[in-house]
Structures are given as C-alpha cells and as structure tokens.
Design a protein around this nucleic acid. Structure first.
Length: 165
DNA sequence: GCCAACGTTGGC
DNA sequence: GCCAACGTTGGC
C-alpha cells in the first residue's frame, strides 16, 4: 500500500497591507500602476514580504491613520522581495545606518494595482463581523502593517462589498 | 537576559 | 491632538 503523500500546508497567498492615504493612497497606486512598497521597518512585516509573498499573491489595500480607516482596494504582489533602496539613502526618512548593501536589513516587494472597491470596507464594519474576529487587523492595539489573510477571510470580506454597510 | 525608557503606530 | 498599545534600544 502506498503511504499517504505528506501534504504541504497551503501556502499563504492573501495579504493585507496598510498605507496612510496622505502618504500613498489607493488612487496613487491606480495612477502609477505599480509601486515599490518601501519604508517597512518592522521585522515581522519584513518577514512576511521576504518569506511569504510571491508574485501573483493578492493584497487588500488598507487605509490607516485617516478619517475612515478600512480596506479600499485590491493589489497584487508583482515581484519577489529585494532590498529596500531607501535604507541606504542618508537623505531618506527610512535611512538605516546599521544596514549595509552587503547585508541589507530591510526588504520590499512591488505591488500593482488591481482594482478599487466600490466602497470602503471600514475597520468598524470589519470589527462587527464575528467571522473575522480571528484577524490580527481587528484586534485592539494591532500595529502590524503587513499581515496574512486566510482564504476564508478574504472571501468573506470580498462578499461584504456587495452589501450595504 | 531583564526591563525601563523611548519612539512609533494608528484609532478615535 | 490625545494616548493606549506595541516594538526597539540600551544600561545594568
């Protein structure tokens, strides 16, 4: 008899990335088409980009630190991770003197615009969904700017768009 | 390795 | 603008 083939756990392929719309909004991404997601200076977020993301993965684009925080659009991972150039630029706000080109500390991926949602799926609305209670996003004090999203959560959230808030 | 001080995030 | 929550730094 043949042993059961060991199953790979399903690779995470859905994500959520936060951006402050005053700095870079979903409309900015639509205008530019594709953008390097620079400035991430958190190890957990970096690891998700470096180790988890692959081109073609889907991304919820989230507006943070604004009047109505929430998911506003969909993007797609366009590249594998590579060193974030801003860490080497002394004039950049994201400059990191402790990093070197030989041993770069911070990575980024590029993301491309897919679509803008018909309406903002506000944090408030997401927090009201019992089905989403397990998401890091809706937990108090969560500051992670790049995080995985389960496929079931992704589908559930997309379905919310069809309904009125 | 502990933990207080500090800086940042991000909702409100 | 406030401030709670969190991550990082650095003295010890």
């Amino acid at each position: 008899m043949s042993p059961a083939r060991p199953r790979q756990p399903a690779r995470i392929s859905h994500w959520l990335m936060k951006s402050e719309p005053d700095a870079f909004s979903i409309d900015d991404l639509r205008r530019k088409g594709q953008e390097a997601w620079d400035g991430v200076r958190n190890y957990q977020a970096r690891n998700f980009m470096r180790d988890g993301m692959r081109p073609g993965d889907k991304v919820f684009f989230y507006h943070s630190n604004c009047a109505e925080p929430g998911i506003v659009g969909i993007a797609e991972v366009a590249t594998d991770a590579y060193p974030d150039p801003s860490q080497f630029d002394p004039k950049s706000a994201y400059f990191d003197a402790a990093s070197s080109r030989a041993n770069p500390r911070w990575m980024l991926v590029e993301v491309k615009f897919v679509k803008k949602l018909k309406r903002t799926l506000s944090l408030k609305e997401l927090q009201a969904q019992p089905a989403l209670a397990g998401m890091a996003l809706v937990r108090k004090g969560n500051r992670l700017s790049v995080m995985p999203v389960e496929k079931a959560e992704w589908d559930y959230i997309l379905n919310l768009e069809k309904h009125s808030a």
